[in-house]
Amino acid sequence: MNMNTVDSAKGRLKGTYIAIMIPIGVAINYIGGIIASSLSLPIYLDSIGTVIVAAIMGPWVGAASGALYNIVSSLISGNIMASMFAICNIGSGLIVGYMARKNHFKSITDVIVATVLVALWNAITGAPIAMVVYGGIDGNAGTNLMIAGLNAIGTDLANAAFLARIPVNLVDKGIASVIAWIVYKRLPDHLKTLNGSTIEK
């Protein structure tokens, strides 16, 4: 007989896990950003929580965590326009979440594929949002320096805003994906199936 236990990945208890994991994802994103700025790193590091929550809980919970992070951080800083970057984080959550659900977040090759997809999505969506909100640049020194460099060699601002975000996001999302993968690999089996995947024996 199947019994629902506190480890059940289905039913009402999953709702409790979701209510716990979304704030944790938001907080990890926020803390990642704080550590990155306190170490004066030229990247964002504010999507680690989104990727981890997406890997553990699935695409839509990951996307919700990413979107809520952008809303909460824009409320804390007062920069409400920056909440538009939630589109980037939603995409990151959906990509990693679906990969994890289909058991494609198990090897380092999977992590590299996830990193490339997430970095491209963030560059494609981040550049036009930055154009609307800030005119092309943003609050990240690394991206701004690359935009200035590309602009100086003749690339127009819109293209520079896109091209500068590719290497920055590859490093940024690469770190986020590797940390999420390490954490996900070490989870007990009952937590690994919260994303809707099945454990392959």
Partner: peptide, 26 residues
Amino acid sequence: KAFVPIIVPVVANSIIKIQDQAIAME
């Protein structure tokens, strides 16, 4: 290099606690 030894324990600690939190909330 300094980033990883700070963020990994923070992430690991918060994930470890989720099961206890779920039971407490339930």
